[in-house]
Structures are given as structure tokens and as C-alpha cells.
């Protein structure tokens, strides 16, 4: 770990000022990823701004039925919150599929969005990695790449985003509220994370000096027909090889509205709203789901070790949609996939 200066921000203004003052300053909330990476000498911030005291710890139920989750609300609090459980059970399920109870207690909503890839090469400073050290190359291409991307990768980076929660947020079309030197702005979830292209060092579209203040969920809750299905190398406490957040509105056996997001397959939670729209109005059957899976995976490409993710994702998409259609979401403590 590199030594750093430490300041405790009491207000959002403090935090923004501290960020503005130092281009290498980093915000510290739950710390479950940043401290981890600092210990591996991957992250080397010169200044740490502790934002744990900022008043961003509320879950607000807004009059229009939407929910605003403060950036510092812990993952566990969100997962067990009665209003979130009732209105957005898909989000709760996805959170409970991730990490461990201890990590979910510490990890925050904003931090979850900002967690970095689990790519072995990113985590090992003795290997090349364009995300960690732009221009150094990608060790994972041609290397050990079991956990890597099959969609949206570039010749510079094949890393995946590791979050479970974000896959559900992508499916639920959440809004990320950020505040920065230029004021407040809302970022639609699909625009928050980015693909690696020529700049894999950038995980998301935030600008330096900005702070996530909340994540807002509005509109369709998909509380009746949803499922979060996660496949991994052991049955708990493991990152996804492939995960699927599926949400459906079904009327008379026909799809009225649908959302599907994939985890473990791309540099960002993968969602294709054009494909979703194409399948609206079709019968909620296995055939439809299989066609949708093919459509979503049309551009999928394996890297060798992870070739299996393509058929795995295809099957997982169909299964998660079947679970959603049947109104029998995957229960995360139940390791049998119903």
C-alpha cells in the first residue's frame, strides 16, 4: 500500500473540494474494493477522502412510487429494506447473490457501482494490463481468461464488471444521481458503465470531481415476474461466471414489457434495449426466450478458456426468463435452480 493523506469529509461540499484539490484523490466509503486493491498495490491514491459521514444514508420512498437509495446505504440495508423488497425484489435478490453478509454490510450502493474488475491480470501489478497501466498490453488475451468477457470486449481489454447488484440495476433502468463541480446530473444506468474500447482504464462515465449521491429506481417494478440467476464456480461467495437479471410484464401469456441484463460477460452489465423491444408482444414461451438469447448473444466471442460462457449464457437467459415468467424467482439460499 502506498502512503496517502487522509481527510474526513463532513459535507458533500467538503468532499467535492477535496477532490477538486487533488486530481489523484479517491473517495473512500465501504472500502471493500478500494482497500483490497490498495493492498495489492493496484490502486495508489495519494489522498483518501473519507465520505462515510456524508448524509447519503437514507432510502427515500418518493410519492410517485419510486425509491431513492442514498449512495452510502449499505448493500445489506438495501437488500433487506421492506419497501425495496416489496417494489424491487429483483434488486434485493441480486444483492443477496453477491459477496458475503460481511461484505454486503460494509459495501455501499455507490461503491458497488464503482467496483473494479476481478481480472487476474488487473489484480497483479507484475503483469501487463491496459486498465491498470494504459499501454502496457492485456495479459488476459491469450492468457488465463476463464472469467473474462464474451461481449463488447476490445483488443485492449477483455475484463468484466464483477457486480451482481449492478446487473439488476441495469435491468431496472435505474438512474444514477451524481453531483460535481458543474452541478447535479442524472445518468441513466445504461450510460453509467462503459465498454473498454481504447480506454479500458475508464470504467464509467463519471468525471473527476463527481460524487454519486444516490441511485433512483422508478417506473415498472417487475415485482411479479423477475429472477436473478447466477452461475459460478462454487455455490456461494464467488463472482459470477454468468448471471442474468430477468424481468417481465406478462399479460395473457404475451410479453408486454421486458428487461434482461447479463453479468459476468462484459465490461459493463450487458443490456440491449433494442432486442428487448423487438420481443415485446411475443408469447412468453421458451421458444421466444431462446430466440431472444440468440439475439443477445449474436456478437458473442470467446477468448479460449471462457468459450463455455456463450452456451452457458444462452441457457441461463432462457432459464431466468422461464423463472420470471412463472413468477418463481430464484431464491439465493436455494442452490437448486427451480
Amino acid at each position: 500500500m502506498r502512503p496517502f493523506s487522509y481527510t474526513r469529509a463532513e459535507t458533500l461540499g467538503d468532499a467535492m473540494a477535496a477532490l477538486a484539490a487533488n486530481p489523484t484523490a479517491r473517495l473512500l466509503a465501504g472500502g471493500t474494493n478500494l482497500i483490497d486493491l490498495m493492498k495489492y498495490d493496484v490502486e495508489r491514491p495519494a489522498a483518501i477522502v473519507d465520505i462515510n459521514r456524508l448524509p447519503l444514508k437514507e432510502i427515500e420512498e418518493l410519492p410517485d412510487g419510486s425509491i431513492r437509495i442514498g449512495a452510502l446505504v449499505s448493500n445489506a440495508t438495501v437488500a433487506h429494506h421492506p419497501a425495496v423488497t416489496e417494489r424491487y425484489p429483483l434488486l434485493c435478490s441480486a444483492i443477496l447473490a453477491g459477496a458475503s453478509p460481511q461484505l454486503r454490510n460494509a459495501a455501499t450502493t455507490g461503491g458497488n457501482l464503482l467496483q473494479r474488475t476481478r481480472c487476474y491480470y488487473f489484480y497483479d501489478p507484475s503483469t501487463p494490463c491496459n486498465k491498470r497501466e494504459p499501454g502496457s498490453g492485456c495479459g488476459a488475451i491469450g492468457g488465463v481468461n476463464r472469467i473474462h468477457a464474451i461481449l463488447g470486449a476490445s483488443e485492449h481489454c477483455i475484463a468484466t464488471h464483477p457486480s451482481d447488484m449492478c446487473v439488476a440495476l441495469a435491468a431496472l433502468a435505474a438512474i444514477v444521481e451524481v453531483e460535481g463541480p458543474d452541478g447535479r446530473r442524472d445518468i441513466p444506468f445504461s450510460d453509467f458503465h462503459r465498454l473498454p474500447d481504447d480506454h479500458p482504464e475508464r470504467d464509467n462515465t463519471m468525471r473527476h470531481g463527481e460524487i454519486i449521491t444516490a441511485v433512483r429506481l422508478e417506473g415498472n417494478h417487475f415485482a411479479g415476474h423477475h429472477s436473478y440467476l447466477k452461475l459460478r464456480d462454487r455455490l456461494s461467495y464467488a463472482f459470477a461466471l454468468v448471471s442474468v437479471a430477468a424481468a417481465l410484464d406478462v399479460k395473457n401469456g404475451m410479453i408486454v414489457d421486458m428487461r434482461i441484463a447479463l453479468g459476468g460477460v462484459a465490461h459493463k452489465p450487458w443490456r440491449d434495449s433494442l432486442a428487448e423491444a423487438e420481443f415485446a408482444g411475443q408469447p412468453a414461451t421458451e421458444e421466444t426466450f431462446a430466440a431472444l438469447a440468440d439475439r443477445l448473444l449474436a456478437g458473442a466471442e470467446g477468448q479460449g478458456d471462457n468459450d463455455f460462457k456463450i452456451p452457458m449464457a444462452r441457457k441461463a437467459i432462457v432459464r431466468a426468463l422461464k423463472q420470471a415468467a412463472a413468477g418463481t424467482p430464484q431464491v439465493q439460499s436455494d442452490k437448486q435452480i427451480r
Partner: peptide, 29 residues
């Protein structure tokens, strides 16, 4: 493990279980 991957360092902070290896002590004032 010192990285939040094993749980051996679990303690209760204000009653909640967390991995103490990933908490900087200065943040817990």
C-alpha cells in the same frame, strides 16, 4: 487473507459483522 475473501477477521462494528481487514481504523472513529 487480508482481502475480504475468507471471513477470519470478522468483527462486529456497531453490532454488524464486517471484515476488519478492509476497514481503515481511522474511518471508524
Amino acid at each position: 487473507c487480508d482481502h475480504g475473501q475468507c471471513g477470519a477477521c470478522t468483527v462486529l462494528i456497531d453490532g454488524e459483522r464486517i471484515n476488519s481487514c478492509l476497514k481503515l481504523a481511522v474511518t471508524l472513529d
